[in-house]
Design a protein around this nucleic acid. Structure first.
Lengths: 198, 198
DNA sequence: CCGGTTTGTAAGCGTCTGCTTACAAACCGT
DNA sequence: ACGGTTTGTAAGCAGACGCTTACAAACCGG
């Protein structure tokens, strides 16, 4: 018979791994890769930092695993036609809104935006944006679907970047519903109505 | 009579300051703020790193001075109606193209994009994007000009971010003229044709 | 109860960072 | 030619970083 792990000082390898990944995910989303230290992560997870290296090998490996896990989670359970609006609303919300929204949040996009400057995000960023672009590409029949999808995704990322870095401004102060309506209408124009060119 | 400074080991304070700012500008644009070290800057400028602190006080102060100088230079000598296309073409060009384009390049946007993750870029980023948004806002008559301008600017930044971080993809491979035409047409829709809402 | 494995801890290593200091050499007015 | 100022140099400091190591405690099959 095993002891109750929740009150025991020893909680087991899998629980420790999960605590580290959860803490890392939150910190990467808040501060980005470079500004998050392994000591921060270990402290938030209430875990000795040496265990981080035992279970993940390196900070970089932990990062990739977190993004991979967090990244596709939301895409998996959101219908393609809702991804655009869902991601946009998540990016428009600066800080975490209601606690209930946390689950629905595209945390991977947060992490990407906050870590984009460093070279570490390049590889995972490529994979992540590919996934999103692929989903968006299914929304159009144009022969250059991939290009149009990437343009729309770029718009989403730019809006998120503006909100996160610039913070204050007309975009930050505007009603999210209003912005959503403007962007979605124009995005649909890009995806559906704009004529193809040679 | 003074000695020829160009061959002398001693080149004078103003020349040293300029060399540091020039080297810093290039490095910040290539690697961003955090990944550029004061030793890198000093080495590129062929200057002892202690002089960086004598003339600028801190790395952060040098950064702000570089962005402020570089930032408004291009805006000053580009007519408002050309800013959108000019900035977009600069952001679409991944690496520095012809040497002649260097002068015309919006290096400030490069620096911003590569440094956006860190908190240091926040303040200067705010000022910089405000300048660009103000110019773009003059292109529309809508009552919510500021919001529309920021949305268009966000698109530009997102496209630049995609190109710099993601690198490969449909957007990177596409013909810049093609992308330019698509984006400019849609941007004009946002600025001019899209109806206002309550 | 014993011996090996798993889980957790404390301390520290080597390196890099922004920045400072102490000092030498060139300059320039007088 | 002298003395103070400006410009440049070499060395190093204190702290943070990612990561490693040596060791202790808990666990578990036999």
């Amino acid at each position: 018979m095993t002891v109750d792990r929740t009150t025991d000082r020893r909680r087991g390898a899998v629980a420790t791994r999960q605590a580290l990944m959860s803490a890392a995910s939150a910190l990467f989303a808040e501060r980005g890769y470079e500004r998050t230290t392994v000591r921060d992560i270990a402290a938030r997870a209430r875990v000795n930092q040496a265990l981080l290296f035992r279970y993940f090998g390196s900070k970089q490996a932990l990062f990739e695993q977190v993004v991979a896990g967090e990244g596709r989670r939301h895409l998996r359970r959101t219908p393609a036609e809702d991804v655009l609006e869902s991601a946009l609303r998540g990016l428009l919300a600066q800080e975490a809104g209601d606690a209930g929204d946390e689950e629905r949040r595209h945390r991977a996009l947060d992490i990407f935006l906050r870590s984009a400057a460093g070279g570490e995000a390049a590889r995972v960023g490529r994979l992540l944006t590919e996934d999103y672009a692929d989903v968006l590409a299914t929304l159009t029949d144009a022969d250059d679907a991939a290009l149009r999808a990437e343009l729309v995704l770029a718009w989403l990322l730019g809006i998120g970047l503006s909100g996160r870095v610039v913070g204050r401004g007309a975009l930050a102060d505007a009603d999210p519903d209003r912005v959503c309506a403007l962007v979605l209408e124009c995005a649909r124009t890009v995806l559906e109505k704009l004529p193809a060119q040679p």
